[in-house]
Design a protein around this nucleic acid. Structure first.
Lengths: 300, 300
DNA sequence: TAAGATTTATAACATGATGTTATAGTTTGG
DNA sequence: CCAAACTATAACATCATGTTATAAATCTTA
């Protein structure tokens, strides 16, 4: 007869407590139940588990040997119990996130800190890289979710777009700061700081200028909004960037003005469409969406 | 509902095989049984375990997380199964032996080697010490068995005596070697090598001499028969020692002759009487008895 | 797309593990 | 030796887990 879990539990309890009656109390079952569990266990393994001495049940040397292993097993069963609860409550799991480098250093750390705060058993891998690589990773199911921009549909990717507000940023004391709203024509004579000229966002921005027969006058290209903010804050040039990035550099001396017409910066939240959805990943994407709400075009 | 072992087994099998039908075959149960085990498990933990894709059951990320722990647990259960079988077959366990120093270096290594040969999971602690300490250890249940001599009953000790044959040993070329049998009177003019003058055995030997109004003429006292053998082999003196020890020094140049009347060397095999008997200890004592058979007074 | 094959789920039932209470037998300690 | 505590046994209830039969879903392929 196979070893039964209940037998092991009874065995451990009796070994520790030295009495079936007490073991029964601890296990919250009746004493005869314990008695039978032990005798069936003993019969199935073929040796005596206890020797009685003055009313105490003393483990035989064999059973002391066994007890070590049995305790280990029951401990790991408890661990599994905990784990299933944590997984259900989305308090455990592993999350692999790929995102744009700009996010990895600005918004993401804050979001992750908040997300992990109440999920002590969740571990995260955060991989910042170029958009194309992010797509590859999601398609290859190496990552559970990706944050990128300029994404257009892909059959293997489940995506959700979020249009983010953008703003014009100016160095402190810049004359345009006097205006409450900036138009393309205001920027024609300024030194423009690009963040990724080839990106969908900057092509759309260009379209706005071209629609009014204006040309953007750019001098510097950076790869991230964050970098553009810092350059402008240093007093060199102006730019149009995501409001979220602009806000986090506000205290570094930066004038922030609405830019009309507003060109949204479209973020995409990605998931591999074929891989089973990780609940923790879905939960994270939801949390991440929430974190964007203050900066969304349609947001509060 | 508590996590059931069977659910974990089914979960592991399906994870590994990607199909309930195959899992059922591996577990040697019917497919509906597996189906129900999985659905009940999934219900009790509260999340989906698998996602289907082209007829394959693909573990969700949560369940991959779980699987690691579950596999560990099932492995240790297998281990326990093995262990109970090994313990039943007395192929596992731990054995604590206390013995006279002379045994620890001569007879015991051979016996242990033979005993452990077919018992790969048995471990041994061998502690050589003086007879009084051996008694203390057995009484205190720090050791499972003890080998000593000169023992007389003790209420906390279960003992079994074995009378061992003794022989007279002479250096190679010694004139007494001409005799086929040695009597006390032959040894009166020899330099006698004692092994533990205070021992029961040597007191008995003394009695034999005194019965014939002879006195033993001793010069050297050693603590072990083994040492006595080596001294005699070096050409210094004669002695009467256990035949077993004499035999193992035969090739070092030692004449062995019967000593009449034979004074047995009485060994005692000890066990704590109160401690639950360890099956492996009982088995060892039996094995040890066997090893003594060729040298016993009443032996073959 | 329809047909056939394969896989999974559901239903109805048998059995054994594990719980219960009642009670008898053992052990311990004054 | 007796009372108290502990353990074993019996008789029974319930549930987990197995079975077979069969329906439903899904995949493969013509």
């Amino acid at each position: 007869m196979a070893v039964r879990l209940r037998q092991l539990e009874a065995f451990r309890a009796v070994s520790q407590l030295g009495s079936m009656t007490r073991a029964a109390k601890q296990l919250e079952i009746s004493q005869p139940a314990v008695s039978r569990l032990l005798s069936s266990f003993s019969a199935s393994i073929g040796f005596k588990l206890f020797e009685r001495h003055k009313g105490q049940l003393i483990p035989t040397q064999e059973s002391r040997f066994l007890l070590r292993e049995v305790s280990r097993l029951l401990d790991s069963l408890d661990h599994i119990d905990d784990l299933t609860h944590s997984l259900t409550a989305r308090k455990a799991g592993h999350l692999r996130i790929a995102c744009l480098p700009g996010f990895a250093t600005s918004h993401m750390p804050r979001v992750l800190a908040g997300f992990l705060k109440n999920r002590p058993a969740v571990t995260v891998t955060l991989e910042p890289d170029r958009p194309e690589r992010i797509l590859e990773w999601i398609i290859g199911e190496q990552y559970d979710c990706g944050i990128t921009d300029g994404f257009s549909d892909h059959p293997a990717i489940d995506s959700e777009d979020v249009a983010m507000r953008t703003v014009c940023i100016l160095p402190k004391g810049h004359p345009l700061g006097a205006k409450s709203e900036i138009a393309p024509s205001d920027l024609v004579d300024e030194q423009f700081v690009y963040a990724r000229r080839d990106s969908v966002f900057f092509r759309k921005l260009n379209d706005v200028f071209r629609a009014e027969n204006l040309t953007m006058n750019y001098r510097i290209e950076t790869r991230q909004f964050t970098a553009a903010c810092m350059i402008v804050a240093e007093g060199f040039g102006v730019s149009v960037v995501s409001e979220m990035d602009a806000m986090s550099h506000r205290d570094k001396g930066l004038l922030i003005r609405p830019f009309k017409p507003m060109v949204p910066h479209v973020l995409s939240l990605l998931r591999p469409i074929h891989a089973p959805a990780s609940m923790i990943a879905l939960e994270f994407l939801e949390y991440f969406q929430d974190s964007l709400r203050p900066y969304r075009m349609d947001g509060a």
